[in-house]
Amino acid sequence: MAAVATEVVTPTRMELLKLKHRVNLAQRGHDLLKEKMDALIIEFFEVLRRIGEARKSALKQLSLAYRALSVCSAVMGTIETRQASREAKRELEVEISTRHIMGIVVPTLEVERVERDALTRGYSLHTTPSVLDEVSKEFEKALGLLVKLAELEESARAIARELERTKRRVNALEYILIPRLKAALKFIEMRLDEMERENFSRLKRIKAMLEAGA
């Protein structure tokens, strides 16, 4: 189905030239965006692959940590465990900065040293059993892995957003703008041909008249 040119187009050679130029530009823009889209898709799947791995190890470690917590609650008592968690030092800091992939802003998350030794955790050592140290250690390990996972998942989301945006622009060019321009182009070419044929037959008639009159 041909696209209908809906704007008013004056069928002149000047317009023809201008339109050809616009089609050219739109086509180049479209091709560039398509390349960007392909590059983004590759990057997206690479990040997804890393997420798959990061999830596996983070979740495995997390379930180890939860298990240690069960043991600790059984040994120490749930209330005492929660009390100890309130006494622990809770000043963990994550270093967050941004970087750019292909023009997208993507976060990087780093923890300096999640794993602490028993002395620096904050709860009193002689009133708590060693199982508490186990729990803390397992959760500290889990945290490190979860921070990396968070970075990856957030990056995936940022890439997906940009992908969607780019895809929409590619489609707008390919299915709306360029067909419209090409239809206008065709219209002008047809009209110009028509006018030339009219001209030609007019000239022939005039010539015939002149010859007959002379």
């Binding site: 939860y66 968690s85 030092k89 809770r90 963990l92 999640v114 508490l132 959760f139 945290l143």
Partner: peptide, 10 residues
């Protein structure tokens, strides 16, 4: 929450 608090979450 208890577990994460023990690892330093503020």
């Amino acid at each position: 929450v208890t577990g994460f608090a023990l690892s330093g979450v503020s």
